[in-house]
Design a protein around this nucleic acid. Structure first.
Lengths: 233, 233
DNA sequence: CGGAGGATTGATTGTTATCAACGGTGGTGG
DNA sequence: CCACCACCGTTGATAACAATCAATCCTCCG
């Protein structure tokens, strides 16, 4: 456990906590503890009795499901300020894994449930975030089922550009945007319902067509956003 | 509007309403009205400003998303006691259509939100149902992205058998189960991320292999559940 | 009886998975 | 500091699966 103060928490105003004022948050502070996970480390396993509840502070995590014979699909991703867990439910349904080194602010389930009961605003916010996650999942269903590999990869790069764009560099004010992917090829394939080879080929094609540059294995430069959007459909 | 009494409502104990006692439900009764939709009729359109909130009383509905060029995917289905709508949010994200003649108990959004605020138990139940819908969506993502047409169709028939099994007929106590599909081939294809032709061929194959019989175009008899499960993976 | 919509079946194509080999890179230990 | 190894990514050849295009065939209605 890491000592911490909610006052200087990086997601204080963005996560569920944002619904509590500085006095109310003391309750939450009392039961939360910061926990670190290294890249690749599992936070929870599908079928676990014990449930993790908490806010993501930094890093990135994935939720994944798999078939009996080992085919795997990433069914959700978690970024800072996102909430993990299922208060009022028992048993994890999906495996949660850190995609990069990550820190969570975790709460024991029962005390956290009590706290939700006492703070309707926080429960309301959890409902809103759950609605948003459901909408995301459903949008992704359309992509997984109906879009081509080309559309999937182009759309993925645009999503990542939007997410990573803040930290990223532009050569000039409106020039090409460069950023690092937080995922390797295999993780991209898991997310898009493709194979590693297909993802690699699609990226190579985008590069060959001058739409992106790949200055490093994790780095991407978007050279022609309009054409990238056209390919995303 | 249809006159109604909550006391004899078919989903009184199953839906959100089940969290309210007979005195509390008067508030809900006051703002709800029953509304009928015919097969194929749209209940709401993606992008609508105005939001429908309500409980499904009878029938079946689908939520669907589509790409710019018209490819469509069913991203969720609604059955009696399920809730439609997004209290505390603005704007529909998906199109809601009646798959068969359906009846809903609909509430104007604002008064319904007020009611949720006054009845924490009902909001809790909405949260639980939303968690369940999210889990369903994520399970379906695995199917859409990673399972073969054979597995999809076999799994679909098992799901339907479980759902329709109650109303259905068995020749003998443990004999083959026969039931009617509430969906036509095109709707099954939309749900599974396949084409009509592929669904038809998979069903023909299951019939040829003696695993199911197709006594009518909407009827299915499961003759060998074990082998059907094996194909579902 | 005729027509329309849905379902089936067939032929073919196209996309993506699979299998296989090779290339690059970063880390570790000699 | 360099060499080697392991892992990740790329590229190529091939195969499999499902989509597409096209032609009937039912079945339910009017």
């Amino acid at each position: 456990m890491t000592q911490h103060h909610c006052a200087d928490c990086s997601v204080r105003k963005l996560s569920l906590c944002g619904t509590l004022d500085d006095r109310e948050i003391a309750d939450l502070r009392a039961i939360g503890r910061r926990q670190q996970f290294r890249k690749g480390e599992a936070v929870a396993w599908a079928g676990d009795e014990r449930m993790v509840c908490g806010n993501v502070l930094s890093g990135a995590l994935k939720l994944s499901a798999s078939t009996g014979d080992g085919r795997e699909q990433t069914v959700g991703t978690l970024y800072p300020s996102d909430f993990v867990g299922r208060p009022f439910e028992r048993g994890e349904h999906f495996t949660v894994t850190a995609l990069s080194d990550s820190e969570l602010c975790v709460f024991p389930q029962r005390p956290f449930e009590d706290l939700l009961e006492r703070h309707a605003k926080m429960e309301r916010q959890l409902l809103r975030q759950t609605f948003a996650a459901l909408d995301d999942a459903r949008k992704q269903m359309l992509t997984l089922a109906r879009r081509s590999a080309t559309e999937k990869v182009a759309g993925f790069l645009l999503d990542m550009a939007a997410r990573e764009g803040g930290k990223a560099a532009r050569a000039t004010a409106n020039g090409p945007l460069t950023f690092d992917l937080p995922l390797n090829r295999g993780q991209i394939a898991d997310l898009l319902g493709l194979t590693i080879e297909t993802v690699s080929r699609q990226l190579t094609k985008l590069k060959a067509d001058g739409i992106v540059a790949l200055p490093g294995v994790r780095a991407v430069t978007i050279r022609d956003e309009a054409r990238l959007r056209a390919r995303a459909g």
